[in-house]
Computed example of a mutant assay.
Amino acid sequence: MMNEPERSIPSLKKRIYQQIADRDTVSKAELLSSSRLTSSTLTRLLEDLLAEGLIETTGLGPSSGGRRPILYKINRDYGYIFGLEISRLTSTLGLFDLQMNPKSLVRWRMDESITPARLVEYAARLMRSFLKDHRIGPDRILGLGIGAVGPLDRKNGVILDPLYFPAKGWAQAPICRMFEEETGFRALLENGANTALIGEQWSIRHEKIQHALYVHAGMSLRSAMMSYGQIVHGTVDMEGSIGQMIIQTDGPRLYAAGNYGALEALASVQALEKQARTQAKMGNSPLAEKYRVSPEQLSFEVLVQALAADEPAVREWFRESAVYFGVGLANLINVFHPEIVFLGGALINSNPMYYETATEIARKNTYYYPAYEPRFSKGELKEDAVVTGAALIVRDQLEL
């Protein structure tokens, strides 16, 4: 086996660090087997990582006939990372160590007052509070990862022209520059759907999943795909394109720029709210009177309450929405053929019936079923998937 050229040592060091980070503990023999490096090169890399405090030894592993092997793990307190989710309904800030253990997490609702400037101000204040609570100096922070609603200019850290934010000012928001100026921490931007998938795949990393799909059903529909362990990025950043998948050619459209019969017009929080308000205005639904709100105040929260109370009409609206969502999900599965499909968002979590109906419809409309059947999951991290994945993108770009 040929020695690796000296100039590739930094990239090799990063690769070995990543392999250790992706496991709880690992021996040198396991690293040799997976890295295909010479023993001398690997020894030098491990010595460098130990000397720099990036990894540490953690006792001895079981013997396979000879000496018990030294086990390595990453030093979780080498530095810390902030992760931030920016979405239309709620946003979340987390402080993580390098093993992705959350030290603090705060979630808040987004409303008409939370402009980009207000969000940056509020989140920066929380960051300072987290650091004070845990007695961590700002110099220990390795960066801020942001998982946000798209479309985005990821390279320049800009939220471009998102729909449905309660507050104004989110178009062309240079969110990374704003945070860097306010906090002094390097900021990286990625789609929230992508960071959710990164987070969920990391949470079951021992399963070595290579091909995965994530679909978020909430105020809008968002999706992300992973192939051979890497997020699939298209030519343009449009995570919400799944919402414009045409399900019913002569169907409604949600807003003036959308497709007729698009999935989001049939299966989204806004579609359900629109349906409930229309029925109330036409006098076909007693919900507004029963819950003492005007037809325009029939929000998703009210509909979830009515669903929990087993209101027949509301249950049927949610069931129809789940059927349409399942058809759209089957279309994605038939194109991509993932091993696992993660589902998240307000609709998925509104009631067990929604998830069960949607996955049943998707399963039955999957080509090659039952010979091929992807696994469906609400994920391990659930509502913390986006913020965890956002922190992971910072860790994965550590300069070693």
Score class of each variant (00 low, 15 high):
Asn3Gln: 03
Glu6Ala: 05
Gln19Thr: 05
Ala21Glu: 03
Asp22Val: 03
Val26Asn: 00
Ser27Glu: 00
Lys28Arg: 04
Lys28Met: 09
Ala29Ile: 00
Ser34Gln: 05
Ser35Gly: 03
Thr38Trp: 07
Thr38Ile: 13
Ser40Phe: 14
Leu42Asn: 03
Asp48Arg: 09
Leu49His: 01
Arg68Met: 05
Pro69Ile: 02
Ile70Gln: 08
Leu71Asn: 00
Ile74Gln: 01
Asn75Cys: 15
Tyr78Arg: 01
Leu84Glu: 07
Thr92Arg: 13
Leu95Glu: 13
Asp97Trp: 08
Arg109Gln: 14
Glu112Met: 06
Ser113His: 06
Val120Gly: 12
Met127Asp: 01
Met127Ile: 03
Gly145Cys: 07
Gly150Ser: 01
Asp153Gln: 04
Val158Trp: 09
Ile159His: 00
Pro162Arg: 10
Ala173Tyr: 03
Glu182Ala: 12
Arg186Leu: 01
Leu188Asn: 01
Glu200Leu: 07
Arg205Ile: 11
His206Trp: 04
Glu207Gln: 13
Leu213Ser: 06
His216Leu: 14
Arg222Gly: 05
Gln230Ile: 08
Val232Trp: 04
Val232Thr: 04
Gly234Cys: 02
Ile242Trp: 05
Ile246Glu: 03
Gly261Ala: 03
Ala267Lys: 14
Ala271Ser: 08
Lys274Phe: 11
Arg277Thr: 11
Gly283Pro: 09
Asn284Lys: 15
Pro295Phe: 04
Val302Ala: 06
Asp310Gln: 11
Asp310Ile: 04
Glu311Met: 14
Val314Asn: 10
Glu316Gln: 15
Arg319Pro: 08
Arg319Trp: 04
Val327Gln: 06
Gly328Val: 08
Ala330Asp: 14
Asn331Thr: 06
Ile333Glu: 00
Asn334Val: 01
Phe342Leu: 07
Pro352His: 12
Ala371Tyr: 15
Glu373Lys: 10
Phe376Asn: 08
Ser377Ile: 15
Lys382Pro: 08
Glu383Phe: 10
Ala385Phe: 10
Glu399Ala: 13
